[in-house]
């Protein structure tokens, strides 16, 4: 289909960012990400079947937002209808709380425990088991760089170093302007397009150290 299938020279990466910039096809970013089909899902969760499934990491967080009001309350109610036991709503509810507040504080755990009639210690035990729950506040953009084997073979460590350098932060810390928190993450299941980086809700693939400034610029400019 294209000359790339016969490529034997340098890996034919074009610009870094999403998987569509590699390979045999010319697709827009929206087409690869699926935005053409779904765009952004409604805060009330849409059909109940999907309500427990797609929390977002948002740039703008509301740490004091109530659990839950308005469309978020609707989504919470929908979540509760999908499981034979209330307990099963715990992960989706924590996801939702994190989407709103940006992290899961002890107070948030307590409120979720009350909402679902679960013991507080139990909620803490579950929350701490899962790494996606931020136990403390993070920056507007949570940058998670995969350094696991497939990305590592292709320079994941260097990409991580580049993010730290260009954001001026330490691993796990938040930059002084509050914009960036950079973390190392385990395999993101995008091993064919190394290095994979997750920034808030989005995957950035084929990221190279050289491409990092452009990504940060885009984040600052577009807020995503």
């Amino acid at each position: 289909m294209s000359d790339h299938t016969k490529a034997s020279g340098p890996i034919p990466f074009r610009n870094p960012g999403w998987a569509g910039n590699t390979g045999s096809f010319d697709l827009t970013e929206a087409q690869v990400r699926g935005d053409d089909f779904v765009g952004v899902r409604p805060p009330d969760g849409g059909h109940p079947s999907g309500a427990p499934s797609y929390p977002y990491m948002k740039a703008d967080k509301a740490p004091d937002a109530p659990l839950f009001e308005g469309p978020y309350r609707e989504r919470f109610e929908k979540i509760l209808t999908r499981y034979p036991e209330t307990r099963a709503a715990l992960l989706p509810t924590l996801n939702l709380a994190q989407e709103l507040r940006g992290h899961i504080s002890p107070d948030t755990m307590r409120e979720v425990a009350v909402l679902l009639d679960l013991p507080e210690a139990y909620v803490r035990g579950v929350t701490s088991f899962y790494t996606m729950y931020n136990k403390k506040p993070v920056g507007r953009f949570l940058i998670q760089v995969c350094t696991n084997i497939s990305c590592n073979l292709c320079g994941g460590d260097e990409v991580l170093a580049a993010f730290l350098k260009h954001t001026g932060t330490e691993l796990g810390a938040t930059s002084s302007d509050g914009d960036f928190t950079v973390m190392e993450v385990e395999c993101l299941a995008a091993c064919g397009t190394p290095t994979a980086v997750q920034i808030n809700s989005r995957y950035y693939e084929n990221v190279t150290p050289d491409g990092v400034p452009a990504i940060l610029e885009r984040l600052r400019a577009r807020g995503e």
């Binding site: 079947s49 797609y54 992960l91 996801n95 899962y130 790494t131």
Partner: peptide, 9 residues
């Protein structure tokens, strides 16, 4: 139902 985990291999 589509259910999301929260980060645990």
């Amino acid at each position: 139902t589509v259910h999301s985990g929260a980060g645990a291999y």
